[in-house]
Simulated scan of single mutants.
Amino acid sequence: MSQSRVASFECGRIIATIAIIALHCQIFMQAPLFNGQPLLGMGLNQISRFAVPLFFIMAGYFIQPRLTAERLPYLWRYARPLLIMWVSWSIIYLILPFNFHIVATDGYFAERGMYWQKLLTTPLNTLFEGGLVHLWYIPGLLSGLTVITILLRFKLERLIIPVASGLFIFGLMAGSYAQMTDLSSPIFTRNGPFFSTFMIMLGFEVRRRNISINLKYSIIMLLIGFALFIGEANYLSLQENGSFFHDFLFGTPLWALGIFFALLAKPNFGDNKITHTLSKDVLGIYLCHLIIVIYYLNIVRLLGINSIIASILAVPVVLIVSTLIVRGLRKTPMARFLVR
């Protein structure tokens, strides 16, 4: 998630982080209900799906000049601190208990044992994920960058777009559309290089070709992309054993790229002290926020807090606590292993 200090992109990263927190908090998924369905929660869940694709596009955009010039040496310098943080947080999440009730009734090792066993049932997928599900972002980012770097190393720049497109299409056909294609993948296709390579490629090519679109057409692009995404989600939900919830669909690139171009068209958007200060914590917040979400939901259940009130409080509580943890970690000797 590293980038130059462009106000609109920093603001975009903060908004995307808030969207991810809202997604993981499952806000309004219990109530209110409309005809027995949490339509508000479902809508907010899907609206949040732009966030990680936008992170990938930004990464490709900002890394393009140095990756093109230096290739493998730069990839290693970029990847090394991310891998250290991925391993460190994975260890933390393997140690920390998630379910207070099971710990209280059956003990720490019973609770952890079930989780460890779950990870071991899909070892290859766990390798591309880490100690907790949201950590897939780092292996995904580095997988995508590695694919592009290898093509650059062997002077196959012309293949970046077709290779990235092929991975993206396979990811969808063996992922969200698998119920229609009967294709399968050795890992969950959200993980690894399948989608990340394509999203990174978009940012990479926008920077390399110096492409820009004005705000009006950026908004049209993102609206068309979002409409396509929701249309696909609704269509897939009507299929046998279909789901309404998806991380990536055919509409995702257009939607996320439209948001990116809108931010690019208005570089001074969100140019204030709060944005510049909070944006430094985005990666740390992303890495630590899910355990705060898990503990928050545990406390909500234990205290019997009304689900609507819990949903309203969830995002600000998790954001504030996560930010305080990140800033606290920076003052410890463990900072280099856990935050940037």
Score class of each variant (00 low, 15 high):
L152F: 14
L297D: 10
L249M: 14
W136K: 10
S48Y: 00
S185E: 00
H24F: 10
L127H: 07
A69H: 11
P186N: 08
V282D: 08
S184M: 15
G43Q: 12
E232K: 02
F248D: 03
L254G: 08
A310F: 02
T149H: 01
D281S: 05
A16C: 03
L223W: 07
S4T: 15
P123D: 01
F229E: 09
F170A: 04
F98G: 13
F34R: 11
A233Y: 10
G113R: 05
F109E: 11
L236M: 01
A7P: 01
L96D: 12
T277E: 14
I200D: 03
I230E: 13
L39N: 10
L54T: 08
L263M: 04
P97D: 12
I309A: 10
A110H: 11
N210Q: 09
I187C: 05
Y235N: 12
N45G: 13
Y286M: 08
G144S: 00
F100I: 14
L264E: 06
A19S: 03
S88Q: 03
V103Y: 03
T105V: 15
V315M: 10
T146E: 12
F128Y: 10
S237R: 07
P162I: 14
I161K: 15
R207N: 11
S184D: 09
A178I: 08
N268L: 13
I169D: 07
L152A: 04
F260E: 01
S279G: 05
S143R: 04
L319D: 10
P97V: 05
P253R: 03
A256R: 00
S218M: 06
N234V: 15
R190W: 12
G130I: 09
L75Y: 03
F62P: 03
N272F: 08
R208G: 09
I305A: 11
L132S: 13
I230W: 12
S165N: 06
M58R: 06
Y295C: 05
F98E: 08
P193M: 02
H134G: 04
I14A: 12
I95R: 07
L324F: 15
H24R: 00
L313T: 12
R158V: 09
I18M: 09
R301S: 09
L152I: 12
M42W: 13
Q64N: 04
T197E: 08
S196H: 04
Y296F: 04
T332N: 13
P162M: 02
A104M: 10
N99C: 15
R66Y: 11
T197G: 00
N272P: 07
I138F: 09
G171Y: 01
W89C: 02
F194A: 03
F188E: 14
G270P: 00
I320R: 05
A310L: 14
Y296T: 06
P38E: 08
P97H: 13
